[in-house]
Amino acid sequence: MRVDWVTFWPRILEATGETITMVIFTLVFSSMIGIAMGLLFFVTRKGNILENKFIFSFLNILVNIVRPIPFIILLVALSPLTRAVMGTTIGTAAAVFPMTIAACFAVARIVENNLVSIDPGIIEAAQAMGASPLRIIFGVLIPEALGPLILGLTFVTVGLVDFSAMAGTVGGGGLGDLAMSYGYQRFDTSVMIVTVVILILLVQIAQFVGNFLSRVFLRR
């Protein structure tokens, strides 16, 4: 059974909207949590401005536990928690929760990696000027790492489009859901092609915006 394209376009549009919603909300929440975690990660490292072995080890173990879990498994495993927090496990809003959990750990690692690449001498210079740890974090670490950080977040965003497709299969909606249920399960290649083309376009746009912003902040 082929879909009637005249009536099907609105569904495509709706699904595109759902995908964008999932990606943007997840990006916002996971960036906030992930950047905070990444900063904490970095400053509590051995020899750093707020060295704290306990916090560092705790975060390190946590990240290493969550990151290797395939997202599709995490999605299912987290569903009781998702229900407790969001009230339901079905729908776009409910999908944002597990996506955020999975993404914030990725963001944390990316933030940490970017901060490690800052010349320690720059941090030392700020300390020598009498900057407090908090001033160093917001006045030095974040501005110095912002360019590569934006590229890292762009990378995460592209990954989120992928996540959203998986979240779709367990009731999250979006383009992934459409591609799976019409294209894969009902062998309607045309739906598959259309959704894939839209996904490619979304990724292209995200990458373009990311590159643009990082160039603005890198000023190179």
């Binding site: 010349d119 001498g121 720059i122 030392e124 210079a125 700020a126 030095v140 501005p143 110095e144 912002l146 902040f217 000023r219």
Partner: peptide, 8 residues
């Protein structure tokens, strides 16, 4: 190595 803030 000067240690200037590259972002400023």
């Amino acid at each position: 190595s000067f240690n200037l803030f590259n972002s400023r």
